[in-house]
Amino acid sequence: MTDQQAEARSYLSEEMIAEFKAAFDMFDADGGGDISVKELGTVMRMLGQTPTKEELDAIIEEVDEDGSGTIDFEEFLVMMVRQ
């Protein structure tokens, strides 16, 4: 866990972390443990947004600390705390 990830967790109660985990699992449609650009786009479109591929890439790049091209749960928490 990076310093950013530990800091993000410090702002959240266990209840909030559990709620974010449920949301993360909804995004992680294939159950792979991370959110891909495609999965992020699908959920955002379900919520009425129309992000471009470039916008989706930028969202993932902003929090993808390990350079995997996807968002894992710890990175997702950082993203949610920043919102």
Score class of each variant (00 low, 15 high):
M1H: 15
M1T: 11
M1V: 10
T2F: 02
T2I: 01
T2V: 07
D3R: 11
D3E: 13
D3H: 06
Q4I: 14
Q5E: 09
Q5T: 03
A6I: 14
A6F: 14
A6W: 08
E7N: 06
E7D: 09
E7S: 08
E7R: 09
E7A: 08
A8T: 13
A8S: 10
R9M: 06
R9H: 07
S10A: 06
Y11H: 08
Y11S: 12
Y11T: 12
Y11A: 12
Y11N: 10
L12T: 03
L12Q: 02
L12W: 09
S13W: 04
S13A: 10
E14R: 07
E14G: 05
E15T: 09
E15M: 15
E15Q: 12
M16A: 13
M16H: 14
M16C: 07
M16W: 02
I17P: 00
I17K: 10
I17F: 04
I17Q: 05
I17S: 02
A18R: 10
A18M: 08
A18P: 01
E19K: 15
E19V: 04
E19T: 08
F20G: 03
F20M: 13
K21A: 07
K21R: 08
K21H: 15
A22E: 08
A22W: 05
A22G: 08
A23P: 01
A23I: 04
A23R: 07
F24Y: 03
F24L: 00
D25C: 05
D25M: 09
D25A: 12
D25R: 08
M26Q: 08
M26G: 11
F27H: 05
F27R: 07
F27S: 09
D28C: 12
D28E: 05
D28W: 01
A29K: 15
A29I: 06
D30N: 13
D30K: 10
D30R: 11
D30P: 03
G31D: 06
G32A: 14
G32P: 03
G33M: 02
I35C: 01
I35E: 00
S36N: 02
V37T: 14
K38Y: 02
K38V: 06
K38G: 12
K38N: 02
E39H: 12
E39P: 00
E39W: 06
L40I: 04
L40Y: 06
L40M: 14
G41Y: 07
G41D: 06
G41N: 08
T42D: 15
T42V: 08
T42L: 11
V43Q: 01
V43F: 02
M44H: 00
M44V: 04
M44W: 01
R45K: 09
M46G: 10
M46Q: 09
L47R: 01
L47V: 11
L47M: 06
L47S: 05
G48L: 01
Q49S: 14
T50V: 07
P51C: 12
T52S: 09
K53T: 11
K53S: 15
K53I: 10
E54C: 12
E54L: 06
E54A: 12
E55P: 01
E55A: 12
L56M: 02
L56Y: 04
L56W: 03
L56N: 02
D57T: 10
D57L: 07
D57H: 08
D57R: 08
A58S: 10
A58M: 10
I60Q: 10
I60Y: 12
E62N: 06
E62I: 08
E62Q: 04
E62K: 14
V63L: 05
V63G: 07
D64N: 13
E65F: 14
D66W: 14
D66T: 09
G67T: 08
G67P: 06
G67H: 08
S68W: 05
G69V: 02
T70K: 14
T70G: 04
T70R: 13
T70F: 07
I71P: 00
D72K: 14
D72F: 09
D72E: 08
D72V: 06
D72W: 03
F73D: 00
F73T: 00
F73M: 02
E74N: 11
E75I: 04
E75D: 05
E75F: 03
F76R: 00
F76A: 02
L77K: 07
L77F: 02
V78C: 10
M79Q: 12
M79C: 14
M79L: 14
M80Y: 05
R82I: 03
R82Y: 06
R82V: 04
Q83D: 01
Q83W: 15
